[in-house]
Amino acid sequence: MKAGRTLLVGLALTLSHDAWAATPMSYLRTFGPAGYPVTRLGWGLGIISVSVVVIVGLLLLGGIFRRRGPRRLSDPNALAVRRDAGGMAWIYIGVGISSLVLIGAMIWTLVVTAVVAHPSSRPALTVQVSASQWWWALRYDTEQPSRTFTSANEIHIPVGQPVRFEVTSTDVIHSFWVPKLGGKIDVIPGQTNVTWLQADQPGVYRGQCAVFCGTEHARMALQVIAQSPADFRAWQESQLADAPRPATPEQQHGTRVFQSHCAACHTIRGSNAGGLVGPDLSHLMSRRTLAAGVLSNTPGNLAGWIVHPQSVKPGSRMPDQTLSGPQLAALMAYLQTLH
């Protein structure tokens, strides 16, 4: 009994806590023009919907209790009432009103569809997103090929400017979704889908794959980091730079470990490592998370991930690595230079 009450109280507390605390994936409030009109429309339709449910619920209750029938059906008085009891007016009026609301909602929908189809100004930037099981490769294209660079899982964008996203997949269907900035676009192999997003406030916006794409679908997150244009340019410059050369002997040892264990799949620009299967690690330390949002990027998590990815994210394409203690230490020392 007591345990039950504790459970109930606890539940009520967590409920109210959760309801008002951060819901980083909620789109009840959005933060950019690709989201605003949609959010308004969503609230509008939601209010219409709740009203309809309430009205129908009240009518039902009214109908049920208004004129209760006989208690027992064997009673001769229980037999049918007269057919001329009418009722067709309900259908005419109910369907009439529903249709008017419907037409309104339809027009509103078509307008919003057209409005959010394209950004109001030319996108400042195009990001190529290539999804794989279960992470996101990113390529920042510019007109100058020398200023193109790649990254993974964390998308930096400048605040206040529309950004164009061209998405495609190397394997199965995924869906690219940053709820606080706008709707989804499916990521389909063999075709390039286009969408756009814009953040009006600096901040970190969480996203996640939305179409079931295999075992680790649940853990294929991404983050959009909106920065002031100046900060964004600074970040862009830092990403364009090659990774620093290893300075200490331990770091040099780490490079060799990387070459023998990691380079087949991962690239570090400025080194001999040029694998294309996994994320580009040139600026690994500039990222906030590891394994597509599964772990925060701390040295402990990084070491654990390198040695046992299969226990952190079972099914991941990265195999467990057999490294001796010194090898791992050297590798970590090297990786931690990749800012």
Binding site: V56, L59, L60, G62, G63, I64, R66, R67, R68, G69, P70, R71, L73, A78, V81, A85, G86, G87, M88, A89, W90, I91, I93, G94, V95, S98, S99, L102, A105, M106, T109, L110, T113
Partner: peptide, 29 residues
């Protein structure tokens, strides 16, 4: 989008027919 919304209309017909049947009838619980 529009064609999907239109399905609301036949659904509304059925809903109001049921409500009217309850409202104008004498329900046995």
């Amino acid at each position: 989008s529009a064609s999907s919304m239109v399905i609301v209309i036949p659904s509304a017909v059925a809903v109001f027919a049921w409500i009217a049947t309850i409202w104008t009838g004498r329900p046995v619980f």
